[in-house]
């Protein structure tokens, strides 16, 4: 027999009764598939994918620039699509494949330490100065090519406009993307 204290009784499904599969606000176990490996983190549901990657998994390639979806420095792939890790909650990514710049060179564990063609071309074309935006630029650039929008400079400009470079390395970034276009 269940004993209930008068005054604290609440019906099922009311606002204050947590539902069975509600998680948080305290830290919960979240399983993430990052660069082909299963990782577990204990995080609050409010933690962004960017926060989980950088602060929990020490994958600091994706950068915290604006933290409000404006600059593109945090660009990673979720299920192969370029997205902003700062506006994505990590807990929503359970079951998805996350790829960061750290996983770009050898996503399948092969490659003998070679860089991804886009990374090679960024180096060859000196497509950065301070380098802060570069991981986001590279992840976005591969997406731009795969989506079929790297046809000419005008198209690259438009489809890379979500990645800001305060050093204004844009001409070199476009040159790198043009060069990598047929190798991606």
């Amino acid at each position: 027999m269940t004993v209930r204290t008068p005054g604290t009784e609440t019906g099922a499904g009311t606002a204050t009764e947590p539902e069975a599969d509600e998680r948080g606000p305290d830290p919960v176990k979240v399983r993430l598939d990052v660069n082909g490996a299963q990782r577990h983190v204990d995080i609050e549901p409010r933690v962004s994918l960017l926060g989980a990657l950088r602060d929990e998994l020490q994958l600091t390639g994706a950068k915290r620039g604006c933290d409000q979806g404006t600059c593109g420095a945090c660009t990673v792939w979720v299920d192969g699509r370029r997205v902003l890790a700062c506006l994505t909650l990590a807990i929503t990514c359970e079951g998805a494949e996350i790829t960061t710049v750290e996983g770009l060179a050898t996503p399948d564990g092969t490659g003998d330490g070679r860089l991804h063609p886009m990374q090679e071309e960024f180096i060859r074309h000196d497509a950065f100065q301070c380098g802060y935006c570069t991981p986001g630029q590279i992840m976005s650039a591969v997406g731009c090519v795969r989506e079929g929008h790297a046809g000419d400079d005008g198209e690259i400009k438009e489809w890379m406009s979500g990645n800001i470079c305060r050093c204004a390395a844009y001409p070199n970034i476009r040159a790198a993307i043009r060069a990598a276009r047929d190798r991606v």
Binding site: E22, V28, E44, I91
Partner: peptide
Amino acid sequence: RPISYLRAEGADGIDSALRAVTDD
């Protein structure tokens, strides 16, 4: 601010999502 998280999925996912938000 801290938040809780509830994922709506499965056969009655739409109804459970509606109920969860409507009631709270």
